[in-house]
Each structure stands twice: as structure tokens, then as C-alpha cells.
């Protein structure tokens, strides 16, 4: 019996729910300043998206 809970499947869920939150906290702390490469869409992309729509429409 752990934390007064008899079934291992239930106390496992109890522990894992807390550990999942701890995992989230740990991830956030270790990757606090880590960025990915994607930046604001530039004019070229916006223009391309409009062109794509036009081509689709023509097709």
C-alpha cells in the first residue's frame, strides 16, 4: 500500500500524474531559452501563399 492506496495500478497513476507535471517543469527549466529556427513569415512567403491560392483557383 502506497499513500494509502491499495491497487498498484492506481498508485502508479497517482505517482505518474505528479511525475508528468514534474517532467513538464524540468523540460521548461532546461529549455527555457532554447529556440527553434522558424521566424516571422517574410513578404516572400506571404506573396507565395497568395500566388498558390491564385494557381489553385485557376486550376
Amino acid at each position: 500500500m502506497l499513500f494509502g492506496i491499495q491497487d498498484p495500478w492506481v498508485w502508479l497513476a497517482y505517482v505518474l500524474s505528479i511525475l508528468s507535471a514534474v517532467l513538464c517543469v524540468g523540460w521548461g527549466i532546461f529549455n527555457w531559452n532554447k529556440d527553434d529556427s522558424a521566424k516571422e513569415p517574410d513578404e516572400e512567403v506571404r506573396h507565395w501563399a497568395e500566388e498558390e491560392d491564385k494557381v489553385e483557383e485557376e486550376l
Partner: peptide, 26 residues
């Protein structure tokens, strides 16, 4: 704005959900 903001949102989201459904179920 960037992937950095998503990384920083992870701990807030994790603790928030634990406090919502975890608390409700217990």
C-alpha cells in the same frame, strides 16, 4: 512568437492540468 515561448509554456500547462483534473478526480 518563437519556440522559446512554447518551451516556457510547458511547465505552466503541466502544473495547471495536474491541479485541474488531478484535483477533481482525487
Amino acid at each position: 512568437k518563437s519556440g522559446r515561448e512554447l518551451n516556457r509554456a510547458v511547465p505552466i500547462g503541466g502544473v495547471f492540468i495536474l491541479m485541474m483534473t488531478g484535483v477533481a478526480f482525487v
